[in-house]
């Protein structure tokens, strides 16, 4: 595997009104790897993640500075199409939010928006993405029942499958396991590791152990600043910064 850079954050800052949520972040997201982003609550992890597929656009108080390059192209330049960006960079949220539709319709929502109509193609996408999210065996007999009836862990895997069905290049995950039990968490982690050969994955997590388990590279954010980034083993065993050391060893946060 190469160490190609998929997304490059260049001196990137985010402001919510007068508050500065991110201070000049420069961070590379390596292609076909899992980048873990850790840090205490309020450190700007989610702001950074949402910046990478421009979901912050929804918030009128939000302002950004600096650049985020996707394959070398600045996604914040005025003529960059945010809707197309979000098709290339998918997002899984902390709380699983299945759309109020059936399982099947949840998954084909994205593909249908891209203009895919053929039934056989949609069926194949549904099966493929549910299998990749390790959910197929549990739900294959009830694809047309409401997604709201799934358990929390199943809903989160459905949300992952839904993103996979769009065949994105990058998957952003915002604390995807924060509300899940250990078994569902293990399922999701298993799926992520299997997926990194095809996708570039950015995983924001509150759970440092999760980053240690699945991430290839880990970045530590603290109060809106990037304190340290490096191979996961190094961040957890011999961090260079005292604050990283304190955080990963559980002294605060």
């Amino acid at each position: 595997m190469t160490d190609a850079v998929k997304i490059a954050n260049r001196n990137f800052s985010v402001f919510y009104g007068a508050t500065r949520a991110l201070r000049g972040i420069t961070l590379d997201v390596p292609a076909h790897r899992i980048l873990g982003i850790i840090g205490p609550a309020g450190s700007g992890k989610t702001a950074l993640l949402r910046a990478m597929n421009r979901l912050n656009d929804l918030n009128p108080d939000c302002r950004v500075e600096g650049q985020i390059l996707l394959d070398g192209v600045d996604i914040y330049q005025p003529d960059f199409d945010a809707v197309r960006l979000r098709k290339r960079v998918g997002m899984v949220f902390a709380l699983p939010v299945p759309l109020p539709l059936s399982l099947f319709d949840n998954i084909v929502y994205g593909p249908r928006l891209s203009g895919i109509r053929a039934r056989t193609r949609l069926n194949a996408l549904v099966e493929g993405s549910l299998q990749a999210a390790f959910l197929w065996d549990e739900v294959k007999d009830r694809l047309h029942t409401s997604a709201m009836r799934l358990s929390g862990g199943q809903q989160q895997r459905l949300c992952l499958a839904r993103v996979l069905a769009m065949e994105p290049e990058v998957i952003l995950l915002d604390e995807p396991c924060s509300g899940l039990d250990p078994i569902s968490t293990a399922r999701i982690e298993e799926a992520l590791i299997a997926l990194k050969s095809k996708y570039t994955i950015v995983l924001v997590t509150n759970n440092t152990k999760q980053a240690a388990r699945v991430a290839d590279t880990t970045a530590f954010l603290f109060q809106g600043e990037l304190v340290e980034v490096g191979p996961t083993g190094q961040i957890f065993t011999m961090p260079k910064d005292q604050r990283t050391n304190d955080y990963v060893s559980g002294r605060f946060g």
Binding site: R84, R86, Y109, L113, C159, V163, M166
Partner: peptide
């Protein structure tokens, strides 16, 4: 729901 739909490219 809004964000979910937008994040899927709507």
């Amino acid at each position: 729901y809004r964000e979910g739909a937008l994040a899927l490219g709507a």
